[in-house]
Design a protein around this nucleic acid. Structure first.
Length: 152
DNA sequence: GCCAACGTTGGC
DNA sequence: GCCAACGTTGGC
């Protein structure tokens, strides 16, 4: 069982949207970075948990906790020429990008990026590393524990 | 809107 | 395989 942080732009899909969805579950799609994809493909498993992070917004930070509820499957948007996530090099036979379904465990009070940067316990966190911009990244067990404890 | 830090593409 | 040019992410 592993821990993750996954990013979403709340203008696209927020933690409220996940909670409002049937079974509190949505497809988390649109990853178009190989390193991020490889984490999903190789290391992410059903039953893993993730912090749901709001990015590219007024107050970026952790906004909730989700479960990974199923195995990865081809991201449908790669085949959709009308989608901004369309990838002309992907084929049905050889999909390039994958999605997972995530289920909201709960919404939390926002733990902002700014606050996290002030916490010595999180100084080694991948999210806070210079130049870090992966949309899926592992979270160390100790960091997970610490953050979970302070999340309201 | 700016820009740092990456990542990707494609000519050679 | 190198690397310049270009594109993207995402905080600010």
């Amino acid at each position: 069982m592993r821990y993750w942080l996954i990013k979403s732009e709340p203008d696209e899909v927020s933690i409220d949207d996940v909670l409002a969805a049937p079974a509190h579950t949505v497809a988390w799609f649109g990853v178009r970075n190989y390193q991020a994809r490889n984490f999903m493909r190789d290391d992410m498993r059903p039953g893993d948990q993730a912090f749901f992070y709001h990015s590219s917004c007024a107050e970026p930070g952790i906004a909730g906790i989700v479960d990974i509820v199923g195995a990865a499957y081809p991201d449908a948007t790669q085949f959709d020429s009308a989608s901004p996530y369309y990838d002309p090099k992907a084929t049905q036979e050889q999909p390039r990008w994958i999605s997972v379904d995530v289920k909201a465990v709960r919404k939390t009070a926002l733990l902002s990026l700014k606050e996290m940067r002030t916490m010595p316990e999180l100084s080694e966190m991948r999210l806070l590393a210079k130049g870090s911009r992966l949309s899926v990244m592992p979270v160390e067990a100790a960091e997970w524990k610490f953050i979970k404890k302070i999340l309201k």
